[in-house]
């Protein structure tokens, strides 16, 4: 008994170690690629930073400050050390350290992606279940088409049309941006998640205003994750509904509702967690295109603004941050998977 437990814990340690190695190499790969983009592709990274009208002595000084006279591998080591300590250099556009900028804009993107994923999961999962249970029916076809269109439509275009219809014509939602200028100075956010902050401070009019701003971009992002989530839910549910334990549950006399929601969906939930996590990561990325349309002051808008101004430090900093969040989400979904499935649960 004791020996078995020891073997099990040794296995757990080995698994954890392997996990760490995977995360570390992935992160190293991310840094290598951004290093490659920022330092190797440009013919002269100094010019990329300063522009070609800088005086010669400034160019020389910057070259030394950036460590460009060192061999490439040393540059990479320095680059990694800086990136790991959160130093992505100075943004040319805002003249702030890139990390400071990102810290300011990131909560906006997180809030948008979170609300979007909530919308996508809360609607997408039931739709997928419905499609699987009523397989081949009209409802199944409709869910399929909703999903296919979601896969096929350019998000920035749909965002423009949504603005045209819901803001300009119907006036149901607020204009682009995150919050009305009126509240910009009276409202002092704590967490950076405006919905949470407004709720916390019981500023109901602010909450209403923030909601009117976030609902349209979040719904759009939600639609994209809905397309993905409903489709995957359908296929997982179809798989579960064919299993023998469903026959056993029927033989016990359980109602169809209980069989579907408590048995089949509970099993489908195990892979679904990964899907929802991936769609959350996808929305963080989708925000790059949506935020420009909605003037949403988040990471996406920051990256695209920097792109337009050839501010490579900011672009690469943003890329590393989004990449890190991707890695983190993958890690988290893996852990969630383990806790949801008793077969892989660490004990």
């Amino acid at each position: 008994m004791n020996g078995r437990r020891r073997a099990r814990s040794r296995k757990a340690v080995a698994a954890a170690l392997q996990f760490l190695v995977v995360v570390a190499t992935t992160y190293l790969g991310l840094l290598a690629v951004t290093f490659f983009i920022g330092r190797v592709i440009p013919i002269d990274p100094v010019l990329a930073v300063l522009g070609d009208r800088a005086p010669a002595h400034v160019v020389e000084r910057t070259r030394e400050a950036m460590g460009l006279n060192l061999p490439l591998y040393q540059q990479f080591v320095i680059y990694c050390r800086q990136a790991l300590s959160g130093d992505f250099g100075i943004s040319v556009l805002t003249t702030n350290p890139v990390m400071t900028d990102i810290r300011r804009v990131f909560p906006a993107t997180m809030e948008l992606a979170t609300v979007g994923t909530l919308i996508g999961a809360l609607i997408g999962v039931p739709l997928g279940v419905l499609a699987a249970v009523k397989r081949g029916s009209i409802a199944d076809q409709i869910v399929r088409v909703i999903g296919l269109v979601g896969y096929s439509v350019p998000i920035f275009w749909l965002a423009l049309l949504a603005l045209l219809v819901f803001y300009a014509r119907l006036k149901w939602v607020a204009y682009p941006g995150r919050i009305d200028i009126v509240y910009e100075y009276t409202f002092s956010p704590i967490t950076g998640f405006y919905l949470v902050d407004a709720l916390w401070q019981r500023q109901w009019d602010v909450l209403r205003d923030v909601f009117r701003h976030i609902i349209l971009p979040a719904s759009l992002l939600g639609y994209f994750s809905l397309a993905y989530i409903s489709r995957m839910t359908r296929s997982f549910m179809l798989n579960e509904l064919q299993q023998e334990y469903i026959v056993a549950a029927r033989a016990k006399g359980l109602s169809e509702a209980r069989i579907i929601w408590a048995h089949a969906l509970r099993n489908a939930a195990v892979p679904l967690v990964t899907v929802i996590a991936l769609s959350y990561a996808g929305l963080l990325e989708g925000s790059v295109l949506t935020e420009t349309v909605f003037s949403w002051p988040g990471l996406g808008l920051y990256i695209t603004n920097s792109l337009q101004n050839a501010d490579m430090n900011a672009v690469l900093g943003g890329t590393i941050i989004i990449g890190s969040v991707f890695i983190g989400i993958n890690l988290l979904s893996d852990l969630l998977y383990r806790t949801l499935d008793p077969r892989t649960r660490a004990r």
Binding site: Y245, A251, H263, N267
Partner: peptide
Amino acid sequence: LRGKRIAMILQDPKYSLNPVM
């Protein structure tokens, strides 16, 4: 009736028991 008055045992417990319950 199912489960209460008529019941059924399936072939393989590996598949016929719900794995996450």
